[in-house]
């Protein structure tokens, strides 16, 4: 079912309002004449109560999916494609509308079922995440957020600082290398290949690992 971009935006806003900020029904206000409102009502996504709009259960689950697509898109742009920070949101706004027919699940799998967007808000889990429920440990996370004894493969390095990047590369921290975390305090000690290194939190936060076991 394809709905217009404008209608998706409205769904997204309504969902965030009711589910995350818990503000209750929204004032319709100026949007009264917006054809997208009519479209959403026709699809049974919203209910009008005088000039207040509420999401129907059907609309709520549709809204959740839009938010999920938007935040997945943000993760993709920020982490993998390394788009500039101020561009992440506007680009994602456009991109989210293209992610239909299971593409968002593919992206979710690619990213290792991330749980939050780059701004720290939760990404609603999709079908693919539920399937991976039993392998809950299988996510990409920063080395600084991993637990002691966790293992995995380096997924990517994220840092804007050339010096940091080169230091990490010199240690052999490159995507695909197996890495295991030995200790987190007072310094992060990890093993990559057959060597052990100690780094501070700053450097550990730049290494992202697809973990394989807890």
């Amino acid at each position: 079912m394809i709905i217009s971009e404008r209608a998706e935006e409205i769904l997204e806003t309504l969902w965030v309002r009711t589910e995350e900020t818990k503000k209750g029904p929204a004032d319709l206000g100026l949007a009264q004449t917006d054809p997208a409102i009519e479209e959403l009502r026709g699809l049974g996504f919203i209910r009008m109560d005088q000039d207040k709009i509420t999401l129907t259960p059907k609309g709520n689950s549709a809204g959740e999916k839009v938010v999920r697509r938007h935040r997945l898109a943000e993760r993709l742009f920020a982490d993998v494609l390394d788009v500039r920070k101020d561009l992440v949101h506007p680009v994602s706004c456009k991109f989210e509308h293209l992610l239909h027919g299971g593409i968002e699940d593919n992206i979710c799998i690619l990213l290792g079922h991330p749980t939050t967007c780059p701004h720290g808000r939760p990404i609603p889990p999709g079908e693919c995440c539920r399937k991976h429920g039993e392998n809950a440990g299988k996510i990409v996370s920063a080395l600084s957020a991993m637990k002691e004894k966790q293992k995995g493969k380096v997924a990517y390095i994220q840092t804007k600082d050339r010096g940091k990047l080169q230091k990490l590369m010199a240690m052999g921290v490159l995507p695909g290398m197996s890495i295991s975390l030995i200790q987190t305090y007072p310094s992060y000690v990890f093993q990559v290949g057959q060597s052990q290194f100690a780094v501070d939190k700053d450097l550990a936060a730049g290494i992202f690992v697809r973990t394989t076991s807890v």
């Binding site: 010096g163 940091k164 230091k167 240690m171 310094s187 000690v189 060597s195 052990q196 290194f197 100690a198 780094v199 501070d200 700053d202 450097l203």
Partner: peptide, 9 residues
């Protein structure tokens, strides 16, 4: 400064 150091066997 940043801290990084190899921990030899």
């Amino acid at each position: 400064p940043l801290f990084y150091m190899e921990v030899p066997p």
